[in-house]
């Protein structure tokens, strides 16, 4: 946990990288993390790869619904409705 104006370390940044990717943090903390990021290429890589990891999952659809699974679902519902 960071308090006051304590200098942001790489460990601090890593603890917050997920929230930073989401933009979910107080402006003051965000500004301090950004200041660290500007001067730390390693953390920039941490941030960039984490962001890309999230994006990859958002852009590639896993497990498309097979048509036969959909058909069996509808058949089950029809059976339930006709009971």
């Amino acid at each position: 946990m960071m308090t006051g104006k304590k200098k942001i370390t790489c460990r601090d940044f890593l603890e917050h990288v997920s929230d930073y990717v989401d933009g979910a943090m107080a402006p003051d903390l965000r500004a301090r993390l950004e200041a660290h990021l500007t001067n730390c290429p390693d953390c920039w890589v941490e941030f960039d790869e984490t962001k890309m990891t999230v994006e990859i999952f958002q852009n590639v659809e896993c497990h498309p619904l097979p048509s036969d699974v959909h058909d069996r679902l509808m058949a089950t519902l029809e059976k339930h409705w006709n009971r």
């Binding site: 790869e49 984490t50 890309m52 990891t53 999230v54 990859i56």
Partner: peptide
């Protein structure tokens, strides 16, 4: 996210 990042590193440009 960190675990997945490690596993998917080869896909990251």
């Amino acid at each position: 996210r960190l675990q997945l990042r490690q596993k998917l590193r080869r896909f990251l440009k």
